[in-house]
């Protein structure tokens, strides 16, 4: 079946084919993939038949429906403490079309860091995960996701959640390997001073395709969002980034920023970007910027003059783009894991 996902909140010309994506020949999702973890002290795990958090998601209703039809259990991780230890969820996808459903709940004044490590046992396969979150007052949820999948793997990663007053969501995503990747996040910044911080890095090669849709929905006064996207395209790879900062009437004092930086490394790559700001409130500040291209000639000349070959310069700069985001991961052991993946 074909499934429409990642639709932007305000449509533009259809000929650009950027309003949404129709994923062709999507397989029905059947059963859960294996996930290993140990729950740190202070975090309570529950399993439910359905999601208990009511929220929109970045990839949208069609993707939610697809996952719901898989009838997998929803694993819920909840905390009321400031949990220092990272909840590490190691996903091992097999060659079947699998689904996983996760809820993350951080109560008032609590903190939780979750690391999702997506790996595949097979070169090819399909996997989907939907993560919903709920962040209480003055609470902070950090979600770190690293994707390192088979070269023919297709992966759907759908996130959505709601913030209470002064609730902060930090989302760090690294897309390092995999064939077709579909990502989306919706953050409901409906409470005063609620905050979203998103940092995404990707490295695509061959005929890899990454399709993204990120929606920061501001209705809360003085709500904040900062979306940074940095990536490298090689060979015939293709990427589409949709980022929306949606200032609704009443979100006075809100500030939103999005920035994209793309390094193009081969002549057959294709980069599509649509950074949207919707503004229905006077007292806001919204900015977006994009910088897309090859390496700066001056930098190339300087590095070549220091005896570094062109190919080595590109390798170095590509890794540096990913590491610049990876280095913002607070946990050294996760940073080290990413470094090892980049060296593979």
């Amino acid at each position: 079946m074909d499934v429409k996902v990642n639709q932007i909140p305000a449509l533009t010309w259809n000929w650009l084919r950027m309003n949404e994506l129709t994923v062709k020949e999507v397989k029905a999702l059947q059963g859960e993939s294996s996930v290993s973890y140990s729950t740190p002290a202070g975090i309570v795990e529950k399993s439910n038949q359905d999601f208990t958090i009511d929220t929109k998601t970045g990839m949208g209703e069609n993707m939610e429906k697809l996952l719901k039809e898989s009838a997998v259990l929803v694993h819920s991780f909840e905390t009321s403490d400031k949990v220092q230890e990272v909840l590490k969820l190691d996903y091992k996808f097999d060659g079947n079309a699998t689904a996983n459903a996760v809820e993350l709940k951080v109560a008032d004044n609590a903190e939780m860091t979750v690391f999702m490590d997506f790996r595949s046992e097979e070169e090819a396969g399909d996997a989907a995960i939907e993560t919903r979150y709920e962040i209480g007052e003055n609470a902070h949820l950090t979600l770190i996701q690293v994707q390192y999948l088979g070269d023919k793997f297709r992966f759907y990663n759908n996130i959505g959640g709601e913030h209470a007053e002064n609730g902060k969501f930090t989302l760090i995503q690294l897309v390092l390997k995999g064939d077709q990747s579909y990502y989306g996040n919706y953050s409901g910044l409906h409470a005063k001073k609620s905050e979203l911080e998103t940092k995404i890095a990707y490295m695509l090669k061959d005929e890899n395709f990454l399709d993204m849709n990120y929606d920061a929905d501001h209705t809360g006064k003085k709500s904040l969002c900062d979306i940074q996207v940095s990536g490298v395209l090689r060979n015939q790879s293709r990427k589409l980034f949709r980022g929306t900062i949606d200032f609704h009437r009443g979100c006075a004092g809100a500030v939103g920023a999005e920035m994209e930086d793309v390094l193009l490394m081969d002549e057959s790559v294709r980069n599509q970007t649509i950074p949207i700001i919707l503004c229905d409130e006077e007292d806001v500040s919204g900015t977006h910027g994009a910088s897309i291209g090859r390496l700066d000639e001056g930098m190339m000349f300087y590095m070549q003059s220091r005896g570094i070959k062109e190919e080595a310069i590109y390798e170095m700069m590509a890794k540096a783009k990913i590491e610049a985001i990876a280095n913002q991961i607070p946990q050294e052991e996760i940073r080290e894991e990413v470094r090892q993946l980049l060296e593979k």
């Binding site: 533009t12 650009l16 193009l264 081969d266 002549e267 790559v269 980069n271 599509q272 649509i274």
Partner: peptide
Amino acid sequence: TIPAMDIRTD
């Protein structure tokens, strides 16, 4: 503001 960019060369 709805700007779109489609870049097909490095």
